[in-house]
């Protein structure tokens, strides 16, 4: 079973963000990491579920009975059909259909795609931004460092969801009302990305400040290697362990943030729903007894986040042997 992780909801820095920095590749290769992985059946199950979700997201077009994003494929006459195993079920709608005649199973597959895309791109965005800023701040120190860290301070004052809402609003108002579904997706990625970079920056900065005083960095400087090379080739790899842990946990947070933005009406549009949008739409039908519209996307989302969190937990423990 996993040990501890402090989830970093809302971008506030919990003081326990750091994980002992160590050459993570070596550690990952070390047999005890894989031993701990194999030992924990729960972690293995979580890994399997996560993998499954990624696979069905990738192969959604092959598995789905319809493309829920193509309005021509939705028939109103097929709307609000109950799941297949109930008395009112109809083939081929395994998990039933929603108000627009959208097959819930297909919508989940495609929605999973959107949610994971937003999550992964958001994490990639925030990770890249945070790592670069953290490297710069930690390596150069001085005025650059304090400027970056002051910005981080200001941002840390606010929970990520509030920042994401604000950024969403800013982008939307700047680009006016002409955002289509794809640009909405980009906006979400940017909003989530900009909300979560601080943790990476702080962690990387901390590690860099430790590493840069070590002999090998001094040696690299002596032989005249340029700063970017030293940072990327020598310092960065040493910070990857904690970054990986943060990224895993943030992936779950990014997916939740996306769903929450959708709930508040700032997420993906109804014509191209993510899991969060599906839950928002389905919520309206819960009282009506059309539970399947919200239940299945809800279960999927919860299972996705749960398994990612379990993986994050395990990763954190595996890289921090002190706690085992």
């Amino acid at each position: 079973m996993s040990d501890t992780v402090v989830p970093h909801k809302a971008g506030s820095s919990a003081p326990r963000a750091g994980v002992a920095s160590a050459p993570w590749l070596a550690r990952l290769g070390a047999s005890d990491v894989f031993y701990s992985f194999r030992r924990s059946r729960l972690t293995m199950a979580a890994a399997a579920v996560t993998l499954l979700f990624f696979l069905i997201a990738i192969f959604a077009p092959l598995l789905a009975v319809q493309n829920p994003f193509d309005p021509a494929q939705l028939q109103l006459m097929n709307s609000r059909i109950a799941p297949l195993w109930t008395a009112d079920g109809q083939s081929p709608f395994l998990l039933g259909t929603d108000e627009q005649g959208r097959d819930v199973f297909s919508a989940i597959l495609y929605g999973l795609r959107i949610s994971l895309t937003v999550g992964l791109l958001g994490v990639l965005f925030s990770g890249t931004l945070g790592i670069v800023l953290g490297l710069i701040a930690g390596y150069f120190g001085g005025a650059v460092d304090s400027l970056i860290m002051r910005i981080a301070d200001v941002q840390l004052t606010f929970p990520a969801i509030l920042i994401a809402l604000l950024i969403n609003g800013v982008v939307k108002s700047v680009f006016g009302n002409r955002l289509d579904a794809m640009s909405m997706l980009a906006v979400l990625v940017v909003a989530i990305g900009l909300s979560f970079w601080v943790q990476y920056a702080r962690t990387v900065r901390g590690s860099v400040m430790v590493e840069k005083n070590k002999d090998y960095v001094a040696a690299a400087q002596l032989i005249g290697l340029p700063a970017p090379v030293i940072m990327l080739r020598h310092v960065l790899p040493n910070t990857m362990g904690p970054v990986l842990v943060i990224a895993t946990i943030n992936l779950a947070l990014a997916v939740i943030t996306e769903a929450t933005l959708s709930f508040l009406g700032s997420g993906m549009p109804d014509t191209m729903p993510s899991l969060g949008t599906l839950i928002r739409i389905g919520n309206n039908y819960l009282f009506a007894g059309e539970w399947w519209i919200v239940a299945f996307p809800g279960i999927t989302l919860a299972a996705l986040i749960l398994s990612i969190n379990l993986l994050g937990d395990w990763l954190r423990d595996a890289l921090n042997p002190k706690l085992r």
Partner: peptide, 14 residues
Amino acid sequence: DAAICQAVVGMLAR
């Protein structure tokens, strides 16, 4: 309102 518009989108798509 939005559901009506979505339905119209589907009908015109056909």
